[in-house]
Every structure is written in structure tokens, then in C-alpha cells.
């Protein structure tokens, strides 16, 4: 009996140690974003640096105000929102249509096309971004939203996920509508899309997070600072001297909030099953 209690105690010590390891950077980020630079440097290394200063709650947002006015942060925030929405909606539109065609229609060379798709999944965007940059450059699409978004929209992987999902929808649902004279487009938008919400949500969230966090590609496409998304702007903030730690941490916090919201809102759609189902 005694042995079991010791093991349980040990287990909780290990769990708490890991919880601290995973949490302390984020807690420090949040707490530091509410303090003055002097407070941060005085408290560094002590437990105090993880505890917010409750005696002056009214000053917590000052670093945020300073950061927004010093770096034109709202422009970059708006850029990120704008780019992300174009990529998310473009991706959902284009890839779901293709996935539907491959799942339902009598597509010529279907076996060859699906086989090619599966092979293309091997090559992620990052492996060919230099060559994509040459194309974008030749088409004079640098410094435009299209240069940023177009290469991110068509995805073999998401077409495949959509295809697998649509294949499971019972034929009868579509066929009765077809007999009633509905067009393929109508059947897709009025019948298939409404009952396929889970897959649209799951892929939408995946694309959203990927687009919001994208860093290297915007760095290549944009040379005008006013067009940078948050990810690039926040790095410039950290490198601009003098770098005020509280402002940097406020910037990192603001960058994180939309992702947090998406995860909370879409909780039931982000399951490990969803993300591993496409691999087999």
C-alpha cells in the first residue's frame, strides 16, 4: 500500500514539474505585458516576475497602447486578418470543389489524378518557395495580396481530405435532388455543403492557423513595411532598438489572441482523429 502512495506522489511531482515547464513562458509573457520595463528588470529571476501587479490594474494596458501607437500595430493586425481570410475562403472554396469532383463525378483519368495528388502531398510549400518566388516575381505579384495568397490556396492534402469525406456521403441524398432537376452546383451548395460542416470547420481552422502563423513567405513577398502581417511586424518590434520588453510581450500576446479564440470556438472540430485520418 505504501509503495503505491509513493508512486502516486512521484507521478504528481513529475506532472507538476512538466506543467510548470509548459506554462511558465506563457505566464511570463502575459504578466510582463502589463508591467513597466523597470518593474520587469527589477523582478527578473524572482517569483514576483510571474505575478501581476494588482495594485495598479488601471495601468495594465499602457504597454499595449504604447505598442499600438509606436509600431502602427493596427495596420499589421488588419493585414493579417485580411490575408488570412482570403487564404481560408479561397482554400475552402477551391479544394472542396475539387475534392467533390473527385469523390462524385466520373472524372476521366481519375485513378491517375488521385494518385498524383497523393504523391504531391509529399512536397510541402516550403520545399519550393524559392521557385514560387521566381514565378510571383515574373508576374509582378510581389507586394500584393495575390502574390501572398495564391500559392497557399490550392492544396493536394486538403483536396484529399475533402474527397475522403465526400465519398462517405450516401449517394441517395444527391440522386433524389438530381432527379428533381437540380444542377450539380445546386446539389453541392444546397445539399452537400450544409451537411459537411465538420470537414469545412476542421480544414478552415487548419488553414487559418497556418496562414496566421506564416512568416517566411510574407517576408519574401513583401518589401513594403506597411504590408507586413503581424508575424513579421512582431519580429521587427523585437529587433528595433530600444526594444521595450513590455511592448514586445504585448505584441506577442495580441498575435496569440486570435488563435486562442479560434481554438476555443472550434474546439470540437480539432480532434486528433480529424488530423490523422488523412494519412492512411
Amino acid at each position: 500500500m505504501k509503495g503505491i502512495t509513493v508512486i502516486r506522489l512521484l507521478k504528481y511531482i513529475v506532472l507538476i514539474a512538466f506543467a510548470i515547464l509548459f506554462l511558465f513562458p506563457t505566464v511570463w509573457m502575459l504578466v510582463s505585458s502589463t508591467k513597466t520595463v523597470v518593474e520587469i528588470s527589477e523582478e527578473i529571476g524572482s517569483m514576483q516576475s510571474f505575478i501581476p501587479n494588482f495594485s495598479n490594474i488601471q495601468n495594465w494596458l499602457i504597454p499595449y497602447q504604447e505598442m499600438f501607437s509606436r509600431f502602427n500595430f493596427s495596420i499589421h493586425f488588419f493585414n493579417s486578418v485580411y490575408y488570412t481570410f482570403i487564404i481560408v475562403f479561397g482554400s475552402l472554396f477551391v479544394n472542396s470543389l475539387a475534392g467533390y469532383a473527385l469523390a462524385v463525378f466520373d472524372v476521366p483519368f481519375k485513378k491517375f489524378i488521385t494518385g498524383a495528388l497523393i504523391i504531391l502531398i509529399i512536397f510541402p510549400f516550403q520545399s519550393v518557395f524559392i521557385q514560387i518566388f521566381i514565378i510571383i516575381n515574373q508576374w509582378n505579384l510581389t507586394n500584393t495580396v495575390w502574390g501572398l495568397a495564391l500559392p497557399h490556396i490550392g492544396s493536394a492534402f486538403y483536396i484529399y481530405l475533402f474527397m475522403v469525406f465526400f465519398q462517405r456521403i450516401p449517394k441517395e441524398l444527391r440522386e433524389s435532388a438530381y432527379i428533381d432537376g437540380a444542377s450539380n452546383w445546386k446539389i453541392f451548395t444546397k445539399i452537400v455543403v450544409p451537411i459537411s460542416r465538420p470537414i469545412f470547420m476542421t480544414i478552415g481552422i487548419l488553414v487559418f492557423v497556418g496562414a496566421w502563423n506564416d512568416y517566411v513567405w510574407p517576408l519574401m513577398v513583401f518589401t513594403e513595411e506597411s504590408k507586413y502581417p503581424l508575424s513579421v511586424a512582431v519580429n521587427i518590434m523585437n529587433e528595433t532598438k530600444p526594444a521595450y520588453l513590455n511592448q514586445v510581450m504585448a505584441g506577442l500576446t495580441v498575435t496569440t489572441i486570435p488563435i486562442l479564440l479560434i481554438f476555443i470556438l472550434g474546439q470540437k472540430y480539432i480532434t486528433p482523429q480529424n488530423s490523422s485520418s488523412g494519412i492512411k
Binding site: F93, V94, N95, L97, A98, Y100, A101, L102, F105, D106, V107, P108, L120, F123, V128, I130, Q131, I132, I134, I135, L150, P151, I153, G154, S155, A156, I159, N184, W185, F188
Partner: peptide, 29 residues
């Protein structure tokens, strides 16, 4: 039938984007 019934339009946008931004860059590389 695939072409004239308009079904090809479902596949075309993705097909174009993937050809331009995945296959073509691989060939370029």
C-alpha cells in the same frame, strides 16, 4: 460529358493552382 456538362469547372481552379504553384516549381527546381 465531363467537359460539356460543366463538371470540369469543379476541378479546374484547384488543378490550375496546383499546376502553377506545386508542379511547375518542382520542374523549375
Amino acid at each position: 460529358d465531363f467537359i460539356f456538362s460543366g463538371k470540369i469547372l469543379f476541378l479546374l481552379p484547384a488543378f490550375a493552382l496546383i499546376s502553377i504553384f506545386v508542379i511547375y516549381p518542382l520542374i523549375l527546381a
